[in-house]
């Protein structure tokens, strides 16, 4: 495992005061907070900062961390010293007091990520138990949260995911170990961006015989190459020939549920939107599909094509700027 220089992560001196640490964390949090930031890798950076702040804001943990000495560099191979932990008691933070209660193990699998996880480095120093200290005294277990990435097609048809759920288990000596088990989750058709999926009883087990917490998966729909999504509605840009737009006619249009026949009204224009009712994501009511027409001109790359354009110019008396556009 690699050493983590928590002071360097927060950009503070080892002698920094609690206020300086708090200010540095808040400044960086504003830059890298996943809800706000556009920085690449913001989420990973933010997790690292949270972990650093978790240690440096807590006098007990900070004192213990400082005992390791200042010679260590980030990324150096690290194992806790044999006598590590003697003389310190990591009491964690009271329930609801803030960060400690927030950091929980969650679900990990392809297409999902856990919101809150400790590094091995943190766990080796402060144990897996500390983050869960906030749950002590509660009748039930905490809820866990994770994000799940699904494609637009999966959102339309429904899908299933294998999730690796990590559960803390208290050993006789009071320390906590994480154990994994894999579950398959069936996700129904019609989930939308930001929607929450509840898996009852799959959160943190209860400490004293109470009910376990729930696992919440927040749906994130991945961008699609063909359709753009807004709520339950999808939009498709659809190329048509000038005569299809001018004369109208029937065309085959892709939808999430497969190709359908659609009638283009005569006199349609490029950019015009046609609606296929109920062809968006399923729901009550289902979303619609919008087909945005894009008139594509045939190239004038042959004598015959040029002759046709010449004939139109001569016979149609058409001025596209007659409406005043210049």
């Amino acid at each position: 495992m690699e050493f983590r220089d928590y002071y360097k992560i927060l950009g503070v001196e080892r002698s920094a005061t609690a206020d300086q640490i708090k200010t540095a964390y808040r400044r960086l949090a504003r830059k890298y907070h996943p809800d706000v930031s556009k920085e690449p890798n913001a989420e990973a950076q933010f997790k690292e900062m949270q972990e650093a702040y978790e240690v440096l804001r807590d006098p007990e943990k900070r004192a213990a961390y400082d005992q390791l000495g200042s010679e260590w560099k980030s990324g150096q191979s690290f194992h806790p010293p044999p006598d590590w932990g003697s003389g310190f008691e990591f009491s964690g933070r009271p329930a609801g007091a803030g960060r400690a209660g927030r950091r929980q193990p969650g679900a990990t699998a392809g297409g999902t990520y856990s919101e809150e996880e400790f590094s091995d480095f943190f766990s080796s120093l402060f144990g897996g138990g500390s983050p869960f200290a906030g749950a002590r005294g509660r009748a039930g277990g905490r809820d866990h949260h994770a994000r799940i990435d699904v494609t637009l097609e999966e959102a339309y048809r429904g899908t299933s995911r294998m999730l690796e759920l990590k559960r803390p288990e208290v050993k006789p000596d009071g320390s906590v170990e994480l154990h994994s088990h894999t579950v398959r989750v069936t996700i129904p058709a019609g989930v939308t961006e930001g929607q929450l999926i509840r898996l009852g009883g799959q959160g943190e087990p209860a400490a004293g015989g109470g009910s376990p917490g729930d696992l919440y998966l927040e749906v994130h729909i991945l961008p699609d190459r063909t359709f753009t999504l807004e709520n339950r509605d999808v939009t498709l840009t659809f190329p048509v020939a000038p005569w299809e737009a001018a004369l109208g006619g029937s065309v085959t249009v892709p939808t999430l549920g497969g190709p359908v026949e659609m009638r283009i009204p005569s006199g349609a224009q490029s950019g015009q939107k046609l609606r296929l009712r109920g062809r968006g994501l399923p729901g009550q009511p289902p979303g619609d599909q919008y087909v945005q027409l894009k008139v594509v001109l045939p190239p004038a790359d042959s004598p015959q094509a040029k002759a046709l354009y010449e004939e139109m110019r001569a016979k149609l008396n058409f001025d596209p700027r007659a409406g005043g556009a210049r």
Binding site: V183, R184, Q202
Partner: peptide
């Protein structure tokens, strides 16, 4: 991968 459980999701809508 050993699957221990198949869970039905409840979408909060």
């Amino acid at each position: 991968v050993r699957v221990t459980q198949v869970l039905e999701a409840h979408v909060l809508g």
